[in-house]
Write a protein that binds this DNA or RNA. Structure first.
Length: 406
RNA sequence: GUGGAAUUAGCUCAGUUGGUUAGAGCACUGGUUUGUGGUGCCGGGGGUCACGGGUUCGAGCCCCGUAUUCCACCCCA
């Protein structure tokens, strides 16, 4: 038997209903906030991700499905959604057009990781990107949007918030932190020794207890923000307070993608195992110019659909549509004709085998149909169809001619 | 990429120190006397015990390899 590749799953029947429910709920909400759908290719030039996500990140460094295509191009399956949307934004010259551009998207992402619960090699994200808005109100809008979506889906969460600073204050903080790490010498773990040169901020969320004990003395990012970043961060917090959105500050929250600056946030759930981040995002004001566009402020987020799927509280299923069946084989043509008519406005499913009325009712019940429509000998002779409403438990027999509008 | 655990029916799982024809519940399917569903009662179908080797008179059970899933690390949504 040929099976799907590791970490790549099919989505069918019940799961797909949840999937579709998520997409429609999230799309409806983001559209209310003024966002428009954008579709970008799954395959992009590798350079796009090297320049945006960053070569030092694990995503680009070791997790990309990268290959040379038949034309000799270095390409890869997209490991995340933002880079492609920014590329489209620049390529379509929206940066030069100016103004505000708000997009949402959803689709498959690919990362060559070791799979576990909530971590697949092909997974789905729903994301939002906003271009051209400098105001921190847009950052707050992002968080409110995620909170709205999660609320609509009945999902509990906690929100972690941080500011990463900008090009004025971040480099200075980085120097201070490196200087501090140097004072720790060999007391910190090997991973941290390595992180010191690749991505020093990451040492702050090291899981090693010995390291953590030392880092309590480390300089805090939030204490080293420049005036602009600091006041924006204060504004953001007060907006969230006014909207009753609870958050906890996490000075160690560092997004793993290099393009983030200023606002960074992450929504986590404690109900889905160790892969607990269900949404993450932040501001990335420098990314557009990294990708050769005109400098444009931008902010966005992405939700991990698979991680959300098992948390979604689905609405009660309602009985809908018709089940149709014949009690004798010769009535089947009449049943098909009636079904064709019902389908103009409703769902109609036909059972081909002749069965007893009892079995047809069972069949209708099984597919959760609202109405069970049956033609037996009596109905066939009178050119009628018997219909039972399985919710109201009311029966009626209507003329087949009326029913088919002939 | 590192370490560990698991894999038996469509699903959730039993299966004794290695010993007849591998079981249960749910699901599916049919019947329950003649045209009334969900519950009840009775019956039925369904398994290459993940895959490939090995040990043994004999393997679902022991050993090795492969695949997949899960857990921790790591990473991130």
């Amino acid at each position: 038997m040929i099976q799907s590749l590791r970490g790549m799953n099919d989505i069918l029947s019940n799961d797909y209903e949840r999937f579709e429910y998520f997409i429609s709920t999230a799309s409806t909400i983001t559209k209310r906030y003024g966002f428009h759908y954008i579709e970008t290719p799954l395959l992009e030039e590798t350079a796009l991700f090297k320049r945006s996500v960053g070569e030092s990140s694990d995503i680009v460094g070791k997790e990309m499905y990268q290959f040379t295509d038949k034309g000799g191009n270095d390409v890869c399956l997209r490991p995340e959604g933002t880079a492609g949307v920014v590329r489209a934004f620049v390529q379509n010259k929206l940066d030069k057009k100016g103004g505000i551009h708000r997009f949402y998207y959803h689709g498959s992402m690919f990362r060559y990781e070791r799979p576990q619960k909530g971590r697949l090699r092909q997974f789905h994200q729903f994301g939002v990107e906003s271009f051209g808005v400098d105001s921190v109100y847009e950052d707050a809008l992002m968080i409110m949007m995620v909170a709205d979506i999660l609320k609509a889906l009945g999902i509990g969460y906690s929100l972690k918030l941080n500011s990463l600073g900008d090009q004025n204050c971040m480099p200075a903080y980085r120097e201070k932190l490196i200087a501090f790490i140097d004072t720790c010498g060999d007391a910190i773990c090997e991973d941290c020794q390595r992180r010191k040169s690749t991505n020093p901020i990451r040492v702050l969320d090291c899981k090693n207890q010995a390291c953590q004990n030392l880092y309590t003395q480390a300089p805090k990012l939030l204490n080293h923000l420049c005036t602009g970043c600091e006041s924006d961060f204060e504004t953001l917090k007060s907006i969230l307070d006014q909207h009753n959105i609870n958050y906890e500050l996490d000075t160690n929250l560092v997004r793993g993608l290099d393009y983030y600056s200023k606002t960074a946030f992450e929504f986590v759930s404690d109900e889905i195992g160790s892969q607990s981040a269900i949404a993450g995002g932040g501001r990335y004001d420098r990314l557009i110019e990294f990708l050769d566009g005109k400098p444009t402020p931008a902010v966005g987020f992405a939700l991990g659909i698979e991680r959300l799927m098992e948390l979604i509280v689905m609405p009660e299923p309602v009985r809908e549509g018709y089940y149709l069946g014949a009690m004798e084989a010769e009535s089947l043509p009449l049943i098909l004709k009636a079904a064709e008519n019902f389908r103009k406005t409703d769902k109609a499913v036909v059972e081909y085998d002749a069965k007893s009325l009892k079995n047809h009712l069972k069949g209708a019940d099984r597919i959760n149909a609202r109405y069970c429509a049956v033609i037996g000998e009596n109905e066939r002779l009178n050119n009628t169809i018997w219909i039972k409403d399985l919710v109201e438990q009311k029966e009626s027999t209507i003329s087949l001619k009326e029913g088919t509008n002939e």
